[in-house]
Amino acid sequence: MNRMQRFYTMLGWIAVLYMLLMFIYPVLKVVITSVWVNGQFTFDNYKTIFSTAIYRQVLVKTLWISIVSTFITLIIGYALANFIAKRPAKKQGFWLMIVIASMFMSLTVRLFGWMIVLGEKGPIIQLFRLLFGEKQELTLMFSSVAVIIGIVHFVLPFVVLNIYTTLKKIEPSLSEASIMLGASPMRTFWKVIFPLSLPGVYAGASLAFSLAASTFLVPTILGGPKDSLMSNLAYNSTITVGNMGLGSAISFVLLIIIVAVLMGLSALERRGHHASESR
């Protein structure tokens, strides 16, 4: 079998080389560009980011919008995943299809749809005017609310699938046993099902946060001038202003934030896991 393995190893190396050249090299180039200004090594770009009020505001805004969207998505996503997992096997396919379809449906198109829904002449505001009179003011488009709605819509299918997959792995006999032993369905859920589904929740949270924090398109389409997030800032710096170093630094800070949050989440998961083991 050695020859087959050698064949696979060779193919594997080709893929590794491609990724090194086309993925790692560009990312490294970003890092280098951010610290290499006019032929000199310097952290100036990073200093600018952390010392300029506007940049700091964007940073903070990115964080809170990502965190809020992540929490909303987790709650909605868990409810939906739990509902799907409890459906009869045949009906689950239908629900999964809707989830996956919305996952691979063009995000540009979906956000365009939200533009109409949230728009000045869209159904929500029309209904609001009908209920509260023409004079009442309500704006949804080009606001943080619109951005959060867009992010939740974008991230929801990823979260649902992650949680659904872990819920499906839980032995149905476990909850049956718990109910037979006299626990209420509520208690069964919180004491048995929910703890066992935590890996899916953590995986979903990681994915949700990294997608939310790095989104570029959602604020571009649904946000106003004040709703720029880190990605938009990086784009403006590189393309509009033409400051490659600063743009690189901003995008690299974003990468570091995401990696840090992912590592924090996985540490949290491991600690929770140990705690429940020793209990």
Binding site: V27, V30, A213, F216, S231, A234, T238, M244, L254, L255
Partner: peptide, 13 residues
Amino acid sequence: IVPLVTTGIGFLL
């Protein structure tokens, strides 16, 4: 995992 803007700037570079 890597933000698309980071990869995007990298490709541009």
